[in-house]
Amino acid sequence: MSLDKVAVKNIASLARIEVRDEDLDGLAVELSNILRFVEQLAEVNTDGIAPMTSVAHLELPRRSDQVNDGGYVERVLANAPEQQDGFFLVPKVVE
C-alpha cells in the first residue's frame, strides 16, 4: 500500500497530530516504506488460524463491587495544565 499526501493528512487528523504541509510528502514516503515492509505477512496462509487475543492464558480477573478508590480530587488535578473549581478546563467546545 502506498500512501499519498491526502491519506497521510487524514491519518494525522485521526491521530490528532498536526503535520505541516511541506512535511506530508516525506512522511508519505516513509510510511509507505513501512507498510511495504509489514505487508510481507500477506504471503503467509493464515486460514483457520485464530488471532491471538492474549499471550496470558488466564481467566479475566474480576474485582468485587466495592468503592475503594477516588475521593481525591487534588491528586486527579495535580498535573492539570488548566483547572478551575475542581474542573479541568479546555478550549470551549461548540456543539
Binding site: N79, P81, F88, P91
Partner: peptide, 18 residues
C-alpha cells in the same frame, strides 16, 4: 494536554490536541 503533561494552546479543542 487536558489532564497532565504538555499543552500547546489552540483555538479549538482539536487544534489544541493536534
Amino acid at each position: 494536554g487536558v489532564r497532565y503533561g504538555l499543552r500547546v494552546e489552540g483555538k479549538t479543542l482539536d487544534e489544541m490536541y493536534a
